[in-house]
C-alpha cells in the first residue's frame, strides 16, 4: 500500500529556492513509486514558516522542508548547518548528518537529511558604494536573526524588518543595505540596490524533518531505504542541481545592474573569517555546550 505524506515547505512553491524542494519531491516520488508519495501542500500560505518544525513535532503535518535557522528555538544547534564553506559530500563524510540526527532525536524530532545547496550563499547588498570592510562600520543593514552576529562583528547596525518594508526602507535611506541570497529577486529591487560585496559567505541547506506519526506509518524496510537514498544518492545530486537556478539569479543581478564590490586577498579572507567566527561564537552561546559546539565546528569548518 502506498503511504502518502503531507509536505510543507518554508518558502512558496514558486520561490527560487523551492526548485530544490521540487527536485526532492519528484525524485522521492519516482524512486519509491507505489510505496511512498509526497504531497507538497504548499509553503507559508499553509503554515507559518517559523512554526513548521512545531507542526512536525506535534504530528499535524508529516514532513517539513525548512531552513535550519527557522527552528533554532527547538534545536539550538540547527543553524550550524549554514556556517560552513564545505560541500555536501565533505560534510557527509565528517559524520555531521549522523550527529544531527542524534541531536534532533534528543529533541524529539526526526531528521531525515538535508537538501543541500552549497553554492547558494549570502551577500550584503547596498544602495551606495562601500569601500572595503572598514567602511561597513556604522552602516544600517537589514538581517535575519542568523546573520545578526556577523553584522555586529563588522561594527554595523543590524535591523530586523519585515520583508515588505525593505524596499521603502532602502528607497528612503532608513537602511543602507541588507543581507540576502542572490536568487530570484534582484530585478524587483533594481531601483534601490546598486552594489553587492563578494565573496559571498556561508552555505544554504534545508532540513527534511519527518513527524513521528508519519515515520511510524512507513514500513520498517522503507525507512532504511528512504534515509539511505536521501543521504547518499539524492543528497549529492541535489547539491549539484542548483546550477541553473544560480545562473538565473546571477543573470538577474547583472540585468538589474548591480555592481560587484570584490574584496580581494587578505581583506576577503578577513571578511569570511569574521563571518564564520562571529557565527560560531554566537552558536556557542546559543547551544550552551562548548564541547558540542567544538565537535560540530570541527565537522563543518577546517
Amino acid at each position: 500500500d502506498e503511504v502518502s505524506l503531507n509536505v510543507v515547505s518554508f518558502t512558496p512553491k514558486t520561490a527560487a529556492v523551492s526548485a530544490g524542494f521540487e527536485h526532492f519531491v519528484n525524485a522521492v516520488n519516482e524512486e519509491f513509486a507505489g510505496e511512498l508519495s509526497l504531497n507538497w501542500r504548499g509553503g507559508p500560505e499553509v503554515m507559518p514558516p517559523f512554526r513548521l518544525a512545531d507542526a512536525v513535532r506535534n504530528n499535524s503535518i508529516d514532513m517539513a522542508l525548512i531552513s535550519p535557522s527557522y527552528y533554532s528555538g527547538l534545536v539550538p544547534s540547527s543553524s550550524s548547518a549554514n556556517f560552513s564553506f564545505k560541500n555536501y559530500e565533505e560534510i557527509l563524510e565528517s559524520g555531521y548528518y549522523d550527529r544531527m540526527t542524534e541531536i534532533h532525536a534528543e529533541r524529539g524530532l526526526r531528521y531525515l537529511g538535508e537538501i543541500p545547496a552549497t553554492d547558494v550563499k549570502f551577500f550584503l547588498f547596498f544602495q551606495d558604494r562601500v569601500d572595503g570592510i572598514d567602511d561597513l562600520a556604522g552602516k544600517r543593514i537589514r538581517v535575519f536573526p542568523t546573520g545578526l552576529p556577523f553584522i555586529e562583528a563588522l561594527g554595523a547596525n543590524g535591523l530586523v524588518l519585515p520583508i515588505g518594508e525593505i524596499y521603502t526602507a532602502m528607497e528612503r535611506g532608513a537602511i543602507d543595505g541588507f543581507m540576502q541570497g542572490n536568487l530570484g529577486w534582484a530585478e524587483q529591487y533594481e531601483d534601490v540596490v546598486n552594489y553587492y560585496i563578494t565573496p559571498p559567505f556561508y552555505r544554504a541547506g534545508f532540513s527534511i524533518l519527518v513527524s513521528e506519526r508519519a515515520w511510524e506509518r512507513l514500513p520498517e524496510e522503507l525507512r532504511g531505504e528512504l534515509q539511505d537514498y536521501v543521504r547518499n544518492t539524492l543528497g549529492p545530486e541535489l547539491d549539484q542541481s542548483w546550477g541553473d537556478v544560480i545562473a538565473a539569479g546571477n543573470a538577474e543581478v547583472e540585468a538589474a545592474g548591480f555592481e560587484e564590490i570584490a574584496l580581494e586577498g587578505e581583506e576577503a579572507e578577513r571578511y569570511l573569517e569574521i563571518a564564520i567566527d562571529a557565527a560560531w561564537e554566537h552558536m556557542q552561546e546559543q547551544i550552551g555546550d562548548d564541547e558540542l559546539t567544538a565537535e560540530l565546528r570541527s565537522m563543518l569548518v577546517e
Partner: peptide, 10 residues
C-alpha cells in the same frame, strides 16, 4: 511591495 516580491515584478 509584497506583490512585487511574490509576482517578481519591478
Amino acid at each position: 511591495v509584497v506583490l512585487g516580491v511574490v509576482a517578481e515584478l519591478s
